[in-house]
Design a protein around this nucleic acid. Structure first.
Lengths: 112, 112
DNA sequence: ATATTATATATCGATAATCTATATATGTCA
DNA sequence: TGACATATATAGATTATCGATATATAATAT
C-alpha cells in the first residue's frame, strides 16, 4: 500500500533527524535506510529530502561536510547538532502524543 | 503540547469518518468529541472541519440532513455512507501501516 | 564501444491540507 | 444589555509533499 503524502507530512523531519542521531549519513543513504527499515512502506522522494535537509541545516539542526567516498564519488555527509538533538526529542514526544490520541479516538475510549 | 498541523494532515478525514461510523453527528459535536476523546490533544478548527465535511459529502462518503434540535436551533447532521465505510477501512489500514513503520524506524529495527 | 541503470544532489511548480481571521446568526446567562 | 457559547461558513496565507526535470559520475549489460 502506498502511504498518502499528507500522512507523511510532519514526521519526515523527525525520521531524518532520528537517523542522523545514530550516525552521520548522506542524503541518498537516508532514502535507502528509511525504505529498508520501514519494509518499503516509506519511499521518501529526493525532491522532498534535499530541500528538507537544507532547511534543517539553515535552522541549525544539522551540519554538513563534503567528502570523497571510497569509490571516488563526492558525497555530502550530514550530522545532527546539539540543537537538533533537542528538537528531535520534542518531535518524538509530539509524535507519541499524537499517535496515542489517534488510537484513543479509533478505539473509542470516549467515556471519561 | 500543541500538535503541529502538518502532523494532523491526512488523518483528520479518517477521524471524522470514524466518529460518523459510530453515530450521526453535527459539525460542532465532532469538534467537541475529538477534543474530549483525545484528552485535549486535538482541537480541530471550524475553518478546517466545515470545508472537510463539504468535500467528504461531495466525494459521496457522507450525507447530510438539516434538522431542528431540541433547543430550537438548526443543525446539519452528517452520516457515513456505504462508500464512506469502505473508504474508512482503507484509511485505517493505511494509518496502521504508517504508524507502525514510523515506530519501526524510531525503534531502529534495521538489521533485517 | 555504447547504452542503460544506479548513484548522488539539486531546483521548480503543482497540489493539498492545515490554520487564522472573518462573517453571520441564535441561545444562554449575568 | 452585553458577553459568551453554540453553530455553520468562506477566504487567504502558509507549508509540506510530490512529480518532473536537470546535472554528473560509476557500474553493468549489450
Amino acid at each position: 500500500m502506498k502511504i498518502d503524502k499528507s500522512l507523511m507530512a510532519g514526521s519526515t523531519g523527525m525520521l531524518i533527524l532520528h537517523l542522523l542521531a545514530e550516525k552521520e549519513m548522506y542524503g541518498y543513504e537516508m532514502i535507502e535506510t528509511l525504505e529498508k527499515r520501514s519494509d518499503n512502506t516509506f519511499s521518501l522522494k529526493a525532491g522532498t529530502l534535499y530541500p528538507l535537509l537544507h532547511s534543517l541545516e539553515k535552522a541549525g539542526y544539522v551540519s554538513s561536510r563534503e567528502a570523497e567516498a571510497e569509490n571516488g564519488r563526492m558525497r555530502k555527509y550530514y550530522s545532527i547538532t546539539d540543537e537538533g538533538t533537542g528538537f528531535l526529542e520534542g518531535k518524538k514526544s509530539e509524535w507519541s502524543l499524537f499517535s496515542g490520541a489517534v488510537n484513543k479516538v479509533l478505539e473509542g475510549e470516549s467515556c471519561v
